Amino acid sequence: MNDQNKGFQKEEAPKTAQGAQGVTSPWKRLLAKKWVFPATYMAAAAIILTLMWVYQDTGKKIVSQDELGIKVSSNEKGTDSSKAPDNSMAVSAHAETMQWPVKDKTQVTVSIPFYDTSATNEVKQAAMIQYNDQLTPHTAVDLKTKDGAAFDVLAALSGKVTAVDQSPVVGSLVEITHTNGLVTVYQSLADVKVIKGADVKKGDVIAKAGRNDFEKEDGVHLHFEVRQGIDGAAVNPETILNEKQQ
């Protein structure tokens, strides 16, 4: 019995079960480790977050280009729109011609002409202004109506008002600087309608003709002067206007 029992014990299954455990696969051993599942979870979470960031970045690029139109406005539309206004403004500035500073030139006459050194002696004498016993060459043209009535004074060219002043000698004056480098000066004014710094267009009413002490004998009139720059030499307005009309 003892021998049989011993033989039976040698054939017991526990040893066989332990042997089966000895041949367990490496994957099962790896999964049996406590750190495997946390590490796998962290790796999966990292992959998911990365995919989400990539998706979000891609979505932002699509919105900025398609919906906001960044590329179109900066490279295509922006370039074309910025050039077109500049070019059109330049063309319009060069194409704009000077007009008489009145609504109807036929309603006024040149009462005092511009003093031109190349003119006849008769014209030169007519263009001399006597003020305080002194003779001064007239650097403008004076315009007045036949009946001496007041009339609207218009901007001869588009530009910016660079001076509005009141002088006891020349009266109220307005100075307008233009993009072509010319400056027009309007003196002997009344009821001035513009202020310094204002932008005016050709033909805008800037004042009415009035009186001044420098040309007192001329009555109600407009002293219209054209200069080559603010401190530049005066030029004959009629010469410029006659060239534009040809």
Rank of each mutant, 00 (worst) to 15 (best):
I48F: 12
G78E: 07
G148V: 03
Q21K: 10
G148S: 01
S188W: 07
G197R: 10
N180P: 03
L189I: 11
A126D: 09
V220W: 01
W53G: 14
G232A: 01
W27I: 15
P38I: 01
T179E: 12
A93Y: 05
S92L: 11
N121Q: 15
E96F: 09
A44M: 10
A95Y: 11
P113W: 03
W35K: 04
S73A: 14
D218G: 05
Q99F: 03
H223Y: 12
A156V: 01
V183H: 06
P113Q: 04
E225P: 00
G203V: 05
I176W: 03
L31A: 10
G203R: 06
Q228S: 11
V170S: 09
F214L: 10
N2S: 09
K10C: 00
K193P: 08
E122C: 08
M98Y: 15
D80P: 00
P237D: 08
D231N: 15
L135D: 12
S88M: 10
M98A: 15
D3P: 02
T16V: 14
D191N: 15
A119Q: 04
F114G: 01
W35N: 06
D133L: 13
K28E: 13
I70S: 09
T50K: 06
A150L: 01
V185N: 05
A46F: 13
N121I: 14
L157M: 13
V169E: 12
M52H: 02
Q130K: 15
S118K: 15
A44E: 03
K71C: 08
L157E: 07
P237N: 09
T50F: 13
Q246N: 14
A90R: 13
N87A: 13
A155R: 10
F37K: 14
G232S: 04
S81P: 00
A93F: 05
L173M: 12
I240R: 07
P168S: 05
E215R: 13
P85E: 11
L143D: 02
T50S: 09
A207H: 05
I112F: 07
E76P: 06
V108E: 02
N242C: 05
K60C: 03
N212L: 05
Q245T: 14
T162W: 01
I240F: 06
S73V: 13
Y131P: 02
Y131E: 04
D80N: 07
N87P: 02
A140W: 07
V110W: 02
D231P: 02
T24D: 08
Q65V: 10
D152N: 11
P113L: 04
I206C: 03
A43D: 00
T117G: 00
S118D: 15
S167R: 06
G197P: 05
K6Q: 12
T179R: 06
T50H: 05
S73P: 03
G210D: 07
D142N: 15
L241A: 04
Y41T: 15
V110A: 00
V185F: 08
K61C: 08
E122D: 15
A95H: 09
T239F: 01
G219V: 10
Q18N: 09
T139Y: 00
E215A: 12
S158D: 08
V169S: 08
L189F: 09
N121Y: 13
K208R: 11
V164S: 00
A46S: 13
S92N: 03
K71Q: 11
